[in-house]
Design a protein around this nucleic acid. Structure first.
Lengths: 79, 79
DNA sequence: CTTTATTTGTCCGTATGTATG
DNA sequence: ACATACATACGGACAAATAAA
Protein backbone atom coordinates (compact mmCIF):
# COMPACT_ATOMS: atom_id res chain seq x y z
CA UNK A 1 0.00 0.00 0.00
CA UNK A 2 1.41 3.39 -0.95
CA UNK A 3 1.65 6.36 1.34
CA UNK A 4 -0.44 9.20 0.05
CA UNK A 5 0.96 12.69 0.17
CA UNK A 6 -1.83 14.65 1.87
CA UNK A 7 -0.87 17.81 -0.01
CA UNK A 8 -1.82 16.37 -3.41
CA UNK A 9 -4.99 14.71 -4.74
CA UNK A 10 -5.03 10.95 -4.46
CA UNK A 11 -6.19 10.50 -8.03
CA UNK A 12 -3.07 12.37 -9.17
CA UNK A 13 -0.78 10.19 -7.12
CA UNK A 14 -2.46 7.02 -8.31
CA UNK A 15 -2.03 8.19 -11.89
CA UNK A 16 1.66 8.76 -11.14
CA UNK A 17 2.08 5.21 -9.86
CA UNK A 18 0.41 3.67 -12.87
CA UNK A 19 2.38 5.89 -15.21
CA UNK A 20 5.60 4.67 -13.63
CA UNK A 21 4.52 1.07 -13.97
CA UNK A 22 3.84 1.58 -17.64
CA UNK A 23 7.13 3.39 -18.25
CA UNK A 24 9.08 0.74 -16.40
CA UNK A 25 7.46 -2.12 -18.24
CA UNK A 26 5.83 -3.57 -15.16
CA UNK A 27 2.57 -2.99 -17.02
CA UNK A 28 3.38 -4.06 -20.58
CA UNK A 29 1.33 -3.02 -23.61
CA UNK A 30 -2.13 -4.60 -23.64
CA UNK A 31 -2.01 -5.20 -19.90
CA UNK A 32 -5.41 -4.80 -18.29
CA UNK A 33 -5.65 -2.01 -15.74
CA UNK A 34 -8.91 -2.70 -13.96
CA UNK A 35 -10.79 0.00 -12.08
CA UNK A 36 -12.04 -2.51 -9.54
CA UNK A 37 -8.54 -3.81 -8.92
CA UNK A 38 -7.20 -0.30 -8.47
CA UNK A 39 -9.96 0.43 -5.97
CA UNK A 40 -8.85 -2.54 -3.91
CA UNK A 41 -5.14 -1.96 -4.27
CA UNK A 42 -5.15 1.72 -3.33
CA UNK A 43 -8.07 1.58 -1.00
CA UNK A 44 -9.94 4.41 -2.67
CA UNK A 45 -13.40 4.97 -4.09
CA UNK A 46 -14.36 4.43 -7.67
CA UNK A 47 -14.60 8.10 -8.53
CA UNK A 48 -11.02 8.57 -7.46
CA UNK A 49 -9.80 5.69 -9.61
CA UNK A 50 -11.72 6.98 -12.57
CA UNK A 51 -10.10 10.39 -12.31
CA UNK A 52 -6.70 8.72 -12.42
CA UNK A 53 -7.45 6.53 -15.44
CA UNK A 54 -9.12 9.45 -17.21
CA UNK A 55 -5.92 11.45 -16.86
CA UNK A 56 -3.80 8.60 -18.24
CA UNK A 57 -6.24 8.15 -21.08
CA UNK A 58 -5.78 11.78 -22.04
CA UNK A 59 -2.04 11.26 -21.98
CA UNK A 60 -2.44 8.38 -24.42
CA UNK A 61 -1.08 5.82 -21.98
CA UNK A 62 -4.32 3.94 -21.59
CA UNK A 63 -6.95 2.89 -24.07
CA UNK A 64 -10.35 2.16 -22.60
CA UNK A 65 -13.18 0.21 -24.18
CA UNK A 66 -16.55 -0.23 -22.57
CA UNK A 67 -17.16 -3.83 -21.67
CA UNK A 68 -13.50 -4.72 -21.90
CA UNK A 69 -11.54 -2.46 -19.65
CA UNK A 70 -8.58 -0.09 -19.69
CA UNK A 71 -5.42 -1.37 -21.31
CA UNK A 72 -1.88 -0.09 -21.61
CA UNK A 73 -1.54 1.50 -25.04
CA UNK A 74 0.51 -0.31 -27.67
CA UNK A 75 2.67 2.71 -28.33
CA UNK A 76 2.81 4.70 -25.13
CA UNK A 77 3.00 8.38 -25.92
CA UNK A 78 6.27 9.72 -24.61
CA UNK A 79 6.29 13.34 -25.36
CA UNK B 1 -38.79 -10.31 -0.31
CA UNK B 2 -36.67 -9.36 2.68
CA UNK B 3 -36.93 -6.12 4.56
CA UNK B 4 -33.71 -4.18 4.30
CA UNK B 5 -32.38 -2.55 7.40
CA UNK B 6 -31.74 1.03 6.22
CA UNK B 7 -28.85 1.41 8.65
CA UNK B 8 -26.73 -1.24 6.93
CA UNK B 9 -25.59 -1.69 3.33
CA UNK B 10 -27.85 -3.85 1.19
CA UNK B 11 -24.93 -5.83 -0.18
CA UNK B 12 -23.96 -6.77 3.38
CA UNK B 13 -27.44 -7.93 4.25
CA UNK B 14 -27.70 -9.93 1.04
CA UNK B 15 -24.37 -11.59 1.82
CA UNK B 16 -25.73 -12.46 5.26
CA UNK B 17 -28.79 -14.13 3.79
CA UNK B 18 -26.77 -16.20 1.33
CA UNK B 19 -24.29 -17.15 4.03
CA UNK B 20 -27.12 -18.43 6.18
CA UNK B 21 -28.52 -20.45 3.32
CA UNK B 22 -25.15 -22.08 2.76
CA UNK B 23 -24.62 -22.81 6.45
CA UNK B 24 -28.10 -24.26 6.80
CA UNK B 25 -27.73 -26.48 3.78
CA UNK B 26 -30.48 -24.77 1.83
CA UNK B 27 -27.74 -24.05 -0.72
CA UNK B 28 -25.74 -27.28 -0.86
CA UNK B 29 -22.20 -27.54 -2.25
CA UNK B 30 -22.07 -26.96 -6.03
CA UNK B 31 -25.38 -25.11 -5.93
CA UNK B 32 -25.45 -22.30 -8.47
CA UNK B 33 -25.87 -18.83 -6.95
CA UNK B 34 -26.74 -16.68 -9.94
CA UNK B 35 -26.21 -12.92 -9.92
CA UNK B 36 -29.22 -12.40 -12.15
CA UNK B 37 -31.42 -14.45 -9.84
CA UNK B 38 -30.21 -12.53 -6.81
CA UNK B 39 -30.97 -9.26 -8.58
CA UNK B 40 -34.53 -10.41 -9.11
CA UNK B 41 -35.00 -11.93 -5.70
CA UNK B 42 -33.71 -8.98 -3.70
CA UNK B 43 -34.74 -6.26 -6.11
CA UNK B 44 -31.32 -4.65 -6.28
CA UNK B 45 -28.88 -3.65 -9.00
CA UNK B 46 -26.17 -5.93 -10.29
CA UNK B 47 -23.36 -3.98 -8.68
CA UNK B 48 -24.98 -4.50 -5.31
CA UNK B 49 -25.26 -8.24 -5.88
CA UNK B 50 -21.67 -8.41 -7.02
CA UNK B 51 -20.46 -6.78 -3.84
CA UNK B 52 -22.26 -9.45 -1.86
CA UNK B 53 -20.88 -12.37 -3.88
CA UNK B 54 -17.39 -10.85 -3.84
CA UNK B 55 -17.49 -10.83 -0.05
CA UNK B 56 -18.59 -14.46 0.09
CA UNK B 57 -15.91 -15.37 -2.41
CA UNK B 58 -13.29 -13.88 -0.11
CA UNK B 59 -14.72 -15.91 2.73
CA UNK B 60 -14.26 -19.03 0.66
CA UNK B 61 -17.97 -19.79 0.55
CA UNK B 62 -18.36 -19.22 -3.16
CA UNK B 63 -16.27 -20.17 -6.16
CA UNK B 64 -16.86 -18.14 -9.30
CA UNK B 65 -15.98 -18.88 -12.91
CA UNK B 66 -16.75 -16.56 -15.80
CA UNK B 67 -19.24 -18.14 -18.17
CA UNK B 68 -20.37 -20.66 -15.59
CA UNK B 69 -21.44 -18.85 -12.48
CA UNK B 70 -20.89 -18.69 -8.74
CA UNK B 71 -21.19 -21.97 -6.89
CA UNK B 72 -21.24 -22.96 -3.25
CA UNK B 73 -17.77 -24.21 -2.39
CA UNK B 74 -17.26 -27.93 -1.88
CA UNK B 75 -15.69 -27.46 1.51
CA UNK B 76 -17.15 -24.29 2.98
CA UNK B 77 -14.59 -22.50 5.08
CA UNK B 78 -15.69 -22.56 8.69
CA UNK B 79 -12.92 -20.80 10.57
C1' DC C 1 -18.70 -25.47 -36.95
C1' DT C 2 -22.45 -22.09 -36.03
C1' DT C 3 -25.98 -20.33 -33.33
C1' DT C 4 -28.22 -19.33 -29.18
C1' DA C 5 -28.66 -18.87 -24.28
C1' DT C 6 -26.66 -18.17 -19.81
C1' DT C 7 -23.49 -16.08 -16.74
C1' DT C 8 -19.70 -13.46 -15.18
C1' DG C 9 -16.31 -9.35 -16.15
C1' DT C 10 -15.80 -4.60 -17.01
C1' DC C 11 -16.71 -0.01 -18.02
C1' DC C 12 -20.09 4.18 -18.46
C1' DG C 13 -22.96 7.56 -16.45
C1' DT C 14 -25.52 9.22 -12.76
C1' DA C 15 -27.21 9.99 -8.07
C1' DT C 16 -27.50 10.59 -2.84
C1' DG C 17 -25.44 11.39 1.60
C1' DT C 18 -21.48 12.34 4.54
C1' DA C 19 -17.11 14.53 5.62
C1' DT C 20 -12.82 17.37 5.21
C1' DG C 21 -9.98 21.32 3.75
C1' DA D 1 -19.23 27.90 -2.29
C1' DC D 2 -16.00 24.55 -4.13
C1' DA D 3 -12.81 20.51 -4.74
C1' DT D 4 -11.62 16.32 -2.99
C1' DA D 5 -12.92 11.86 -1.25
C1' DC D 6 -15.51 8.01 0.69
C1' DA D 7 -19.50 4.70 0.62
C1' DT D 8 -23.46 3.26 -1.30
C1' DA D 9 -26.70 2.32 -5.10
C1' DC D 10 -29.15 2.40 -9.56
C1' DG D 11 -29.49 1.17 -14.56
C1' DG D 12 -27.32 0.28 -18.93
C1' DA D 13 -24.09 -1.47 -22.57
C1' DC D 14 -20.78 -4.38 -24.39
C1' DA D 15 -17.19 -8.27 -24.06
C1' DA D 16 -15.70 -12.91 -22.95
C1' DA D 17 -16.25 -17.67 -21.31
C1' DT D 18 -19.02 -21.57 -21.04
C1' DA D 19 -22.47 -24.77 -22.37
C1' DA D 20 -25.98 -26.71 -25.08
C1' DA D 21 -28.70 -27.16 -29.44
Amino acid sequence: MIEFDPTRPKWEQIADVIRDRIRSGEYPPRQLVSEVQLEAEFGVARGTVRKATAALREEGLLVTTQGMGSFVAEKPADG
